[in-house]
Protein backbone atom coordinates (compact mmCIF):
# COMPACT_ATOMS: atom_id res chain seq x y z
CA UNK A 1 0.00 0.00 0.00
CA UNK A 2 2.85 2.34 0.87
CA UNK A 3 4.59 1.55 -2.44
CA UNK A 4 1.37 2.26 -4.31
CA UNK A 5 0.98 5.57 -2.49
CA UNK A 6 4.56 6.55 -3.36
CA UNK A 7 3.94 5.63 -7.00
CA UNK A 8 0.71 7.62 -7.20
CA UNK A 9 2.22 10.67 -5.50
CA UNK A 10 5.22 10.47 -7.85
CA UNK A 11 2.83 10.37 -10.83
CA UNK A 12 0.81 13.26 -9.40
CA UNK A 13 3.80 15.50 -8.78
CA UNK A 14 5.42 14.75 -12.11
CA UNK A 15 2.06 15.43 -13.72
CA UNK A 16 1.72 18.78 -11.97
CA UNK A 17 5.22 19.71 -13.09
CA UNK A 18 4.53 18.68 -16.68
CA UNK A 19 1.10 20.31 -16.96
CA UNK A 20 2.53 23.63 -15.75
CA UNK A 21 4.83 23.71 -18.78
CA UNK A 22 1.91 25.04 -20.80
CA UNK A 23 3.86 26.68 -23.59
CA UNK A 24 6.13 23.66 -24.10
CA UNK A 25 3.12 21.32 -24.10
CA UNK A 26 1.23 23.56 -26.53
CA UNK A 27 4.21 23.50 -28.86
CA UNK A 28 4.63 19.76 -28.53
CA UNK A 29 1.01 19.26 -29.55
CA UNK A 30 0.73 22.00 -32.15
CA UNK A 31 3.83 21.08 -34.14
CA UNK A 32 2.55 17.68 -35.31
CA UNK A 33 -0.94 19.13 -35.81
CA UNK A 34 0.58 21.79 -38.04
CA UNK A 35 2.62 19.12 -39.83
CA UNK A 36 -0.51 17.06 -40.44
CA UNK A 37 -2.60 20.00 -41.63
CA UNK A 38 0.19 21.16 -43.94
CA UNK A 39 0.59 17.76 -45.59
CA UNK A 40 -3.00 16.52 -45.43
CA UNK A 41 -6.02 18.81 -45.58
CA UNK A 42 -4.00 21.79 -46.81
CA UNK A 43 -1.25 20.00 -48.74
CA UNK A 44 -3.31 17.47 -50.64
CA UNK A 45 -1.15 14.46 -49.64
CA UNK A 46 -3.85 12.68 -47.70
CA UNK A 47 -2.27 9.22 -47.73
CA UNK A 48 1.14 10.49 -46.67
CA UNK A 49 -0.40 12.73 -44.01
CA UNK A 50 -1.88 9.85 -41.99
CA UNK A 51 1.37 8.01 -41.17
CA UNK A 52 3.26 11.31 -40.98
CA UNK A 53 0.82 12.57 -38.35
CA UNK A 54 1.35 9.41 -36.32
CA UNK A 55 5.12 9.67 -36.47
CA UNK A 56 4.92 13.37 -35.58
CA UNK A 57 2.72 12.51 -32.60
CA UNK A 58 5.44 10.14 -31.45
CA UNK A 59 7.78 13.10 -31.44
CA UNK A 60 5.37 15.01 -29.18
CA UNK A 61 5.00 12.14 -26.76
CA UNK A 62 8.72 11.38 -26.74
CA UNK A 63 9.38 15.07 -26.18
CA UNK A 64 7.12 15.16 -23.13
CA UNK A 65 8.84 12.05 -21.76
CA UNK A 66 12.27 13.55 -22.46
CA UNK A 67 11.48 16.77 -20.61
CA UNK A 68 9.99 14.88 -17.68
CA UNK A 69 13.35 13.12 -17.27
CA UNK A 70 15.27 16.39 -17.42
CA UNK A 71 12.92 18.20 -15.01
CA UNK A 72 13.26 15.56 -12.31
CA UNK A 73 17.02 15.11 -12.52
CA UNK A 74 17.94 17.41 -9.67
CA UNK A 75 15.61 15.86 -7.11
CA UNK A 76 15.53 12.18 -7.92
CA UNK A 77 18.47 11.23 -5.73
CA UNK A 78 17.02 13.28 -2.88
CA UNK A 79 13.73 11.46 -3.30
CA UNK A 80 15.60 8.17 -3.17
CA UNK A 81 17.27 9.28 0.06
CA UNK A 82 13.85 10.22 1.39
CA UNK A 83 12.65 6.65 0.91
CA UNK A 84 11.45 6.33 -2.67
CA UNK A 85 12.53 3.36 -4.72
CA UNK A 86 13.51 3.68 -8.35
CA UNK A 87 10.46 1.58 -9.26
CA UNK A 88 8.12 4.10 -7.54
CA UNK A 89 9.46 6.97 -9.60
CA UNK A 90 9.63 4.97 -12.82
CA UNK A 91 6.16 3.45 -12.62
CA UNK A 92 4.72 6.81 -11.58
CA UNK A 93 6.30 8.42 -14.63
CA UNK A 94 5.19 5.65 -16.97
CA UNK A 95 1.61 5.83 -15.68
CA UNK A 96 1.52 9.56 -16.25
CA UNK A 97 3.17 9.58 -19.64
CA UNK A 98 1.41 6.56 -21.10
CA UNK A 99 -1.94 7.98 -20.01
CA UNK A 100 -1.04 11.31 -21.62
CA UNK A 101 0.25 9.48 -24.70
CA UNK A 102 -2.99 7.55 -25.10
CA UNK A 103 -5.03 10.76 -24.80
CA UNK A 104 -2.82 12.43 -27.40
CA UNK A 105 -2.95 9.41 -29.72
CA UNK A 106 -6.74 9.33 -29.49
CA UNK A 107 -6.89 13.07 -30.12
CA UNK A 108 -4.73 12.69 -33.21
CA UNK A 109 -6.83 9.76 -34.37
CA UNK A 110 -9.98 11.89 -34.15
CA UNK A 111 -8.27 14.77 -35.96
CA UNK A 112 -7.04 12.51 -38.76
CA UNK A 113 -10.36 10.66 -38.97
CA UNK A 114 -12.19 13.94 -39.43
CA UNK A 115 -9.57 15.58 -41.62
CA UNK A 116 -8.66 12.71 -43.95
CA UNK A 117 -11.45 10.14 -43.63
CA UNK A 118 -9.03 7.18 -43.75
CA UNK A 119 -10.65 3.90 -44.82
CA UNK A 120 -9.43 1.77 -41.89
CA UNK A 121 -10.21 3.47 -38.58
CA UNK A 122 -9.21 0.39 -36.57
CA UNK A 123 -5.71 0.49 -38.04
CA UNK A 124 -5.59 4.24 -37.42
CA UNK A 125 -6.28 3.82 -33.70
CA UNK A 126 -3.95 0.81 -33.45
CA UNK A 127 -1.13 2.63 -35.25
CA UNK A 128 -1.47 5.78 -33.19
CA UNK A 129 -1.77 3.79 -29.97
CA UNK A 130 1.40 1.87 -30.79
CA UNK A 131 3.07 5.17 -31.58
CA UNK A 132 2.22 6.44 -28.11
CA UNK A 133 3.47 3.22 -26.55
CA UNK A 134 6.85 3.57 -28.29
CA UNK A 135 7.09 7.35 -27.90
CA UNK A 136 7.26 7.26 -24.10
CA UNK A 137 10.25 4.89 -23.76
CA UNK A 138 11.88 6.61 -26.73
CA UNK A 139 11.81 9.92 -24.86
CA UNK A 140 12.91 8.26 -21.61
CA UNK A 141 15.81 6.56 -23.37
CA UNK A 142 16.96 9.78 -25.03
CA UNK A 143 16.66 11.58 -21.69
CA UNK A 144 18.73 8.92 -19.97
CA UNK A 145 21.30 8.79 -22.77
CA UNK A 146 21.64 12.51 -23.43
CA UNK A 147 20.31 14.39 -20.40
CA UNK A 148 20.85 17.82 -21.92
CA UNK A 149 18.12 19.87 -23.55
CA UNK A 150 19.78 20.80 -26.81
CA UNK A 151 21.48 17.49 -27.58
CA UNK A 152 18.48 15.39 -26.58
CA UNK A 153 16.03 17.49 -28.56
CA UNK A 154 18.27 17.29 -31.63
CA UNK A 155 18.50 13.51 -31.30
CA UNK A 156 14.71 13.22 -31.12
CA UNK A 157 14.29 15.49 -34.13
CA UNK A 158 16.90 13.41 -35.93
CA UNK A 159 15.19 10.09 -35.25
CA UNK A 160 11.73 11.34 -36.24
CA UNK A 161 13.13 13.29 -39.21
CA UNK A 162 14.82 10.18 -40.60
CA UNK A 163 11.60 8.19 -40.07
CA UNK A 164 9.62 10.76 -42.03
CA UNK A 165 12.19 11.06 -44.82
CA UNK A 166 12.77 7.40 -45.61
CA UNK A 167 10.58 5.38 -47.97
CA UNK A 168 8.48 3.25 -45.59
CA UNK A 169 9.62 -0.06 -47.08
CA UNK A 170 13.34 0.75 -47.20
CA UNK A 171 15.77 -1.51 -45.36
CA UNK A 172 16.82 1.24 -42.97
CA UNK A 173 13.20 2.06 -42.10
CA UNK A 174 12.67 -1.49 -40.85
CA UNK A 175 15.20 -1.06 -38.05
CA UNK A 176 13.87 2.27 -36.80
CA UNK A 177 11.57 2.44 -33.75
CA UNK A 178 8.43 3.65 -35.50
CA UNK A 179 8.53 1.22 -38.44
CA UNK A 180 5.71 -0.92 -37.05
CA UNK A 181 3.15 1.81 -36.40
CA UNK A 182 4.21 3.53 -39.64
CA UNK A 183 3.27 0.43 -41.63
CA UNK A 184 -0.03 0.10 -39.79
CA UNK A 185 -0.87 3.74 -40.46
CA UNK A 186 -0.16 3.20 -44.17
CA UNK A 187 -2.83 0.52 -44.14
CA UNK A 188 -5.13 2.93 -42.30
CA UNK A 189 -4.51 5.50 -45.01
CA UNK A 190 -5.65 3.11 -47.73
CA UNK A 191 -2.41 1.81 -49.23
CA UNK A 192 -3.96 -1.65 -49.36
CA UNK A 193 -3.21 -4.91 -47.60
CA UNK A 194 -3.80 -5.93 -44.03
CA UNK A 195 -2.18 -5.20 -40.72
CA UNK A 196 0.53 -7.78 -40.12
CA UNK A 197 1.07 -9.00 -36.56
CA UNK A 198 4.84 -8.69 -37.07
CA UNK A 199 4.46 -4.90 -37.20
CA UNK A 200 2.79 -4.91 -33.80
CA UNK A 201 5.48 -7.24 -32.46
CA UNK A 202 8.17 -4.97 -33.95
CA UNK A 203 6.66 -1.96 -32.17
CA UNK A 204 6.21 -3.76 -28.85
CA UNK A 205 9.74 -5.17 -28.99
CA UNK A 206 11.13 -1.71 -29.69
CA UNK A 207 9.13 -0.19 -26.84
CA UNK A 208 10.43 -2.87 -24.48
CA UNK A 209 14.03 -2.53 -25.68
CA UNK A 210 13.94 1.25 -25.33
CA UNK A 211 12.46 0.91 -21.86
CA UNK A 212 15.23 -1.49 -20.84
CA UNK A 213 17.87 0.96 -22.12
CA UNK A 214 16.16 3.89 -20.41
CA UNK A 215 15.76 2.13 -17.07
CA UNK A 216 19.30 0.74 -17.18
CA UNK A 217 20.89 4.14 -17.73
CA UNK A 218 18.52 6.09 -15.50
CA UNK A 219 18.69 3.73 -12.53
CA UNK A 220 22.50 3.95 -12.56
CA UNK A 221 22.30 7.72 -12.43
CA UNK A 222 19.86 7.96 -9.54
CA UNK A 223 21.38 5.16 -7.50
CA UNK A 224 22.13 6.02 -3.88
CA UNK A 225 24.32 4.12 -1.43
CA UNK A 226 22.57 2.89 1.69
CA UNK A 227 25.47 3.11 4.08
CA UNK A 228 25.68 0.45 6.75
CA UNK A 229 25.10 1.20 10.39
CA UNK A 230 28.15 0.95 12.64
CA UNK A 231 28.83 -2.70 13.41
Amino acid sequence: MTALRRTLVAAEMQGRDLLRRRLALAMLVSLPVAFYLATGPLGGQAQYAVPAAGVSAAWSIAGAAFFSVLASRRIEQRLMLAGYRAADLLVGRLLLLEAGGVVLALGFSVLVAVGSSPPDLGALVLGNGLTALIGVPLGLAVGALLPRELEGTLLLIGIVGVELSLPPDSAIATVLPLYGPGQILLIAAGYGGQVEPSWVVHGLAYALALLVVAVGLWSRRIRVSRHAAPG
Binding site: T2, M13, R16, D17, R20, A71, R74, R78, L79, G83
Partner: peptide, 24 residues
Protein backbone atom coordinates in the same frame (compact mmCIF):
# COMPACT_ATOMS: atom_id res chain seq x y z
CA UNK B 1 22.66 20.08 -1.31
CA UNK B 2 24.29 23.36 -2.23
CA UNK B 3 22.21 23.71 -5.38
CA UNK B 4 18.56 23.68 -4.24
CA UNK B 5 17.30 20.22 -5.06
CA UNK B 6 13.74 21.28 -5.75
CA UNK B 7 11.41 21.19 -8.73
CA UNK B 8 10.87 24.60 -10.29
CA UNK B 9 7.21 24.03 -11.04
CA UNK B 10 6.05 22.63 -7.71
CA UNK B 11 5.02 24.70 -4.71
CA UNK B 12 6.52 24.36 -1.24
CA UNK B 13 3.47 22.44 -0.01
CA UNK B 14 3.69 20.06 -2.96
CA UNK B 15 7.37 19.44 -2.17
CA UNK B 16 6.43 18.61 1.41
CA UNK B 17 3.87 16.05 0.24
CA UNK B 18 6.25 14.61 -2.36
CA UNK B 19 9.15 14.15 0.05
CA UNK B 20 6.94 13.33 3.01
CA UNK B 21 5.35 10.43 1.16
CA UNK B 22 8.81 8.91 0.72
CA UNK B 23 9.21 9.20 4.48
CA UNK B 24 5.94 7.32 4.99
Amino acid sequence: PQDPGVLDLLTADEHLIYFGTGLR
